[in-house]
Design a protein around this nucleic acid. Sequence first.
DNA 1: GGGACAATAT
DNA 2: TATATTGTCC
Length: 291
Amino acid sequence: MGEEVKNYSHDTERVTEWEIGLPTADDLTPLSQPLIPPELASAFSISPEPYRTLLDVNRASNDTISALRSGGGGGGSQTLSAVIEPDEEEEEEEPDRENGSGTECKKLRRLDSAEDADSNMQNNNDDPSSRSVKRPRLVWTPQLHKRFVDVVAHLGIKNAVPKTIMQLMNVEGLTRENVASHLQKYRLYLKRMQGLSNEGPSSSDQLFASTPVPQSLHDSGGGGGGGGGTSGGHSHHAPIPMPYPPPHMMAMLGMPHNGFNNGGFQQRDWSSGFSYPHHAHGHGITPSGDK
DNA sequence: GGGACAATAT
DNA sequence: TATATTGTCC
């Protein structure tokens, strides 16, 4: 790891902090390589994508970058659509990354090509003004969850209510319901952790277990849990007005869940994780509007 | 209206 | 299984 790549032709100041924890170029499959090995492709009678040379890839990424730069300009707000920053950005450190072994688990995602009988009801809506568009379900990726935890921690368990959390998280496309639902589950988890008071990251709750529970959350628990609360001290943070560096993130809704990138869309944001798997018909991005 | 929570649906 | 939705109570 750790070798500064300065391939970028543009002059963006890099925020190296954001890059910590990101996979290095070596960890990623080069764009010039097919996502599916030829053998596999032929085994499933998948017609392989046209072969791409590095030049093609380069050109494509330059296109993307220039499109972004001209379109988004230096401006701040970007609507969803194609917010793909040339630079990798991540947030914060992740000290202990205990990965069992060196081998990255590569999961081949099988799409059930089962024809979605997908009764696509009244769902064809281009009009952003209409909120009847049913948005695909949110996937709480570790990154997203971390942000969630951070916000909750800063608010203090006491002030952490869905609406506030949602606002502070500053994630486009995230709704109060999303947060409420997740918060519900998170509280359950916290309760269990307190009840056990001992560390025993149960195998379950991988997501939660991977994110340290901030001390400020051990708050009064109100006795509820059961006794034994851990430790006593807690510092409380007053609700802060503008807590987080809003890294303008967006929720990617409904990425085409097709093995291949159609338009040449590349997902990246708050890390590769923010994805909505489901049937996203047609255009997937842009939850837009909303709230 | 909004939050907590449980039950239920997808 | 994870997340969404709904219903009830406060």
